[in-house]
Design a protein around this nucleic acid. Structure first.
Length: 576
RNA sequence: GCCACCGUAACUCAGUUGGUAGAGUAGCUGAUUUGUAAUCAGCCUGUCGGGGGUUCAAAUCCCUCCGGUGGCUCCA
């Protein structure tokens, strides 16, 4: 059999059936839900009273082995729907009956291997004998049809490949992902923490993390000023009425915290920055000549997230968006979106992210504003993407309540994607807040608003950055760029001079002057993933040199201090 | 929020069928002045996540709350 992608899907789908067969043989009372192939494996959902244990997984895996050995044929056949319903009703498979009831076809497609029969449109591999290189990975809860009001099922995840090598490679990838986990590295590199005492989903940036954040923020602000944005700062709370006007109270309440009483008035902690930027805009009457007006802010927002979804820096309850709101004329919309897309790509590429997945999300069921506006805005987003030459997919119904959006997911070095950047068109807020400008004919007109975030949130972006680089940040971002390691006390004075000189020209350097052996100092600097280690012994002291060792090689290079400085400056300038 | 699992020293983890806790690292003290990934010795460290219960006795069993993990759902 050929080993192309489609066949891999068939292989995985078949593995899911074999797993279901094994489960049915071991636990006959289990009811079957669904079991598809997914991106890197397969799963099957079961309705079983007692929870599956890790030991069960082992048993199921063994049973699967037996089934594979029997080399059963996957047989395809069809049954008329009433017969199919009757068949599953008799077997007590209520989920299958429900599935059939929702299918339009007159005949139902079945697959059978050995005594195991499943409703399934296929395709499958020919024989169970091909299912050799699999592994069951985890047990998880899942709702029937993804609906939390319905039955809670147990899902078993697994993965399978055609060859042992591919399976091993995939398992190694999972290990590698564990080693890169930003929560683990965040602790090891002392970057951030969360505390039970302060509440989940609230991030504490430690000195090294906060320093990285400052570097990111400085870069961000400088680039925004270069790109004709103006920087704002707005408060963290505001009157509830504002959020009623904006529509958030109607459409976004489940993500907002409860109001707090201040002098008898209800205040909200902000989940978004947009209404505040509108306040600034509205302090003046604006001419069409001024547009587009671009307000940018690193705005910290708080949103209620269900406890089960919180995850390190990736999903939190308080975060800082690298937000901006652009007020422009309708005829400027497309060009403005184009320049935002270009800006996004520039920023992402600077941080080393070169691959993306782009989505255009269209109108959701709960929405504000007029249909005609939605269409215009969606159209502008698509056209802008086409103009920049970015391929995109449509995400139907996934837009925000006030307008359609472009989401750019970045792919990290393990090919995992993370949603960070977002560009959203909004006709609703200008209407709600009566945002205006004066046109050529001296008439007041409503501008269009674009909400956009390039990195999304500093927290998530930081998390992705940590995992992408495995904590070994490029020199320009590294909190400590150079560690000076003297061998004995007698070079300490020279080492201090080196330190002062590096600091003086803006290189972030530290001196490890402890009375320890060089091996230990190297080891610790290495574990902290510091890009430059500068060893200083008697020879270096006498000659005014440093012995450079980089974190990514064992090789040492002796050079004049001035030479190291220009080398480092060059790499920092080029954001390597 | 829901399902499952987990929560022992600052960190990583041991702790047999219930008999009130241990190892490495870190920290502190001292010795050592060391040339590219761990020098040696000594010392210190805990309401075993919180509360309640069962028991003569609970880190271990039960209940409950909090927090974490993997998913579901949702999202920057």
């Amino acid at each position: 059999m050929e080993k192309n992608e489609d066949n891999l899907q068939a292989l995985r789908h078949s593995a899911s059936h074999i797993m279901a067969q094994a489960v049915k043989e071991l636990y006959p009372d289990v009811k079957l839900a669904i079991g598809p192939a997914i991106a890197d494996g397969f799963y099957y959902d079961f309705d079983k009273k007692e929870p599956f244990t890790p030991e069960d997984l082992e048993k199921i895996s063994q049973k699967m082995k037996e089934i594979v050995k029997q080399n059963l044929k996957f047989e395809h056949y069809e049954k008329p729907r009433d017969e199919a319903i009757k068949y599953f009703q008799e077997k007590g498979e209520k989920y299958k009956v429900e599935l059939i009831n929702d299918l339009p076809d007159a005949n139902m497609s079945f697959y059978k291997q050995g005594d195991f029969v499943d409703l399934c449109k296929g395709p499958h591999v020919g024989f169970s004998g091909s299912l050799k290189h699999y592994k069951l990975l985890s047990i998880a809860g899942a709702y029937w049809r993804g609906d939390e009001k319905r039955e809670s099922l147990q899902r078993i995840y697994g993965t399978i490949f055609f060859t042992k090598e591919e399976l091993d490679k995939h398992l190694a990838l999972l290990e590698e992902a564990k080693a890169r986990d930003h929560r683990k590295l965040g602790k090891e590199l002392d970057l951030f923490s969360v505390h039970e005492e302060t509440g989940p989903g609230l991030i504490f940036w430690h000195p090294k993390g906060a320093l990285i954040r400052k570097i990111i923020e400085d870069f961000w602000k400088d680039e925004h000023l270069k790109n004709d944005y103006q920087l704002l700062n707005s408060p963290h709370i505001g009157l509830l009425d504002l959020w009623k006007t904006s529509g958030h109270w109607n459409f976004y309440r489940e993500n907002m915290y409860s109001p707090m009483d201040v002098d008898g008035q209800d205040y909200m902690i902000k989940p978004m920055n947009c209404p505040f930027h509108i306040m600034v805009y509205k302090t003046h009457l604006h001419s069409y000549r001024e547009l587009p007006i671009r307000y940018a802010e690193l705005g910290t927002v708080y949103r209620y997230e269900r406890s089960g979804v919180l995850h390190g820096l990736m999903r939190v309850r308080g975060f800082t968006q690298d937000d901006a709101h652009i007020f422009c004329r309708l005829d400027q919309l497309e060009a403005e979106i184009v320049s935002v897309i270009k800006f996004v790509l520039f920023v992402l590429q600077t941080f080393g992210f070169k691959e993306y997945e782009v989505y255009v999300s269209t109108r959701p069921e709960k929405y504000a504003g007029e249909l005609e506006h939605w269409e215009k805005a969606t159209d502008a987003l698509k056209k802008a993407l086409e103009q920049v030459g970015l391929a995109y997919q449509i995400d139907p119904g996934e837009g925000v309540f006030y307008g359609p959006k472009i989401d750019i997911k970045i792919k990290d070095c393990l090919n995992r994607s993370w949603q960070c950047s977002t560009i959203q068109v909004d006709f609703n807020l200008p209407e709600a807040f009566k945002v205006e400008y004066v046109n050529e004919e001296s008439k007041t007109v409503q501008p269009v608003m674009i909400h956009r975030a390039l990195m999304g949130s500093l927290e998530r972006f930081f998390g992705v950055l940590i995992e992408h680089y495995k904590g070994a940040f490029p020199v320009w971002i590294s909190p400590v760029q150079a560690k000076i390691l003297n061998i004995t006390d007698s070079q300490e004075e020279y080492a201090r001079k080196v330190l002062a000189e590096l600091k003086n020209i803006g290189i972030r350097a530290e001196l490890d002057a402890r009375n320890e052996k060089l091996g230990l100092k190297i080891r610790e600097a290495q574990l902290q993933k510091i890009p430059y280690m500068l060893v200083i012994g008697d020879k270096e002291k006498e000659n005014g040199t440093v012995a450079l060792r980089r974190r990514n090689s064992q090789e040492q290079k002796i050079m004049a201090l001035a030479e190291f400085i220009s080398l480092a400056q060059e790499e920092i300038k080029n954001k390597l």
